[in-house]
Simulated scan of single mutants.
Amino acid sequence: MKPLLYYEREADYDALLASVIMSISPRDSVEFIKAKEVTDCIWEGTRLKRLQHDAVTAELPKAVHDLIGAQFAQTAGNDFNMDGESAKEDVYKRTRMATQKDAVKRPLRDLLKYYNVDEQVVHAMAFKSALPFVEKIVGIRDAVEQRGEKALRSIEQRRLSLAAQTRSLTHGKGGSIIHDVTEVYGNKT
């Protein structure tokens, strides 16, 4: 079963799986299962990284509002817009829309500049707001990475064990397969 969410592309997952399989070169079905586990961990880790980014991005409107909303609301007074929203609600709504649409990022940057607010400060405040959630994501990512590393170590240990078994079978007591054969069948030369 592929660990895909409804919006994720199966072709992207398949390409990642093919790349991991090419890199690991599984020798049997057990190693293939471990290679798939590594792929799943990479896939899930990437998704969690996106989720971290999205969590901070979702806090940007609140950060903008907190930084310039009060100043803007003082300028606008307690006026209400056409929808009956207060100036503060209007600012929050507009900044939320502005941070989500690329076409209006420039006006938002201009607004921040007008109020002498650095974009990095906005991002820092957004990160601070999202920090509890981001910390949980980091913990989950760490567990996923450990699971992937465990699968890789399992493949490596299995290969080392098989190599040792092969050496022991081919070299036997006398140190070589020829010695073992002559010991069993005698030297008929």
Rank of each mutant, 00 (worst) to 15 (best):
V134M: 00
K136T: 07
M1W: 04
R147T: 09
K101H: 14
D142T: 10
D142K: 12
F32Y: 08
R96N: 10
N81D: 15
K188M: 09
H65A: 08
E149V: 01
A58R: 07
P3F: 05
V184K: 13
S168A: 14
T170M: 12
V91C: 12
A58W: 00
K49H: 06
H171N: 11
D12I: 03
M1C: 09
K88E: 15
L67D: 01
T189Y: 07
R94T: 11
A35Q: 06
I177A: 14
Y185R: 11
T166C: 06
A126M: 00
M97T: 09
Y185L: 15
A103G: 06
F127M: 01
T39G: 05
K101S: 14
I68P: 03
E44W: 03
K36F: 03
A103L: 10
E183H: 14
R27K: 13
A15N: 09
T75V: 13
K136V: 10
A35M: 04
T75F: 08
D14R: 07
D79Y: 04
R167Y: 10
G84C: 08
L169S: 10
D90M: 12
K136S: 13
F133D: 00
S86R: 05
L51N: 04
I137A: 00
R106Y: 04
K62E: 12
T57A: 15
K62D: 08
Y6P: 04
H123Y: 01
A35D: 05
A151E: 10
A63N: 02
E10M: 06
V121T: 01
F72H: 02
W43H: 08
A35Y: 05
P107F: 02
L108M: 06
K150H: 09
G174S: 06
C41G: 15
G174P: 02
R94I: 08
I137P: 01
R158D: 13
L152K: 10
R94E: 06
L51W: 12
Y185V: 15
H53V: 11
D12M: 03
Q146G: 10
L111I: 06
G139V: 00
L67Q: 02
T166D: 10
A15S: 14
A151V: 10
S161F: 12
A70N: 11
Q157E: 13
K128S: 03
F32V: 13
G172N: 00
S154P: 00
E183L: 11
E85A: 12
Y115E: 04
A126V: 01
K93L: 08
S161W: 09
D118R: 00
A18L: 04
V104G: 02
S129K: 12
L4S: 11
S168R: 14
S29I: 11
Q100D: 08
Q157G: 10
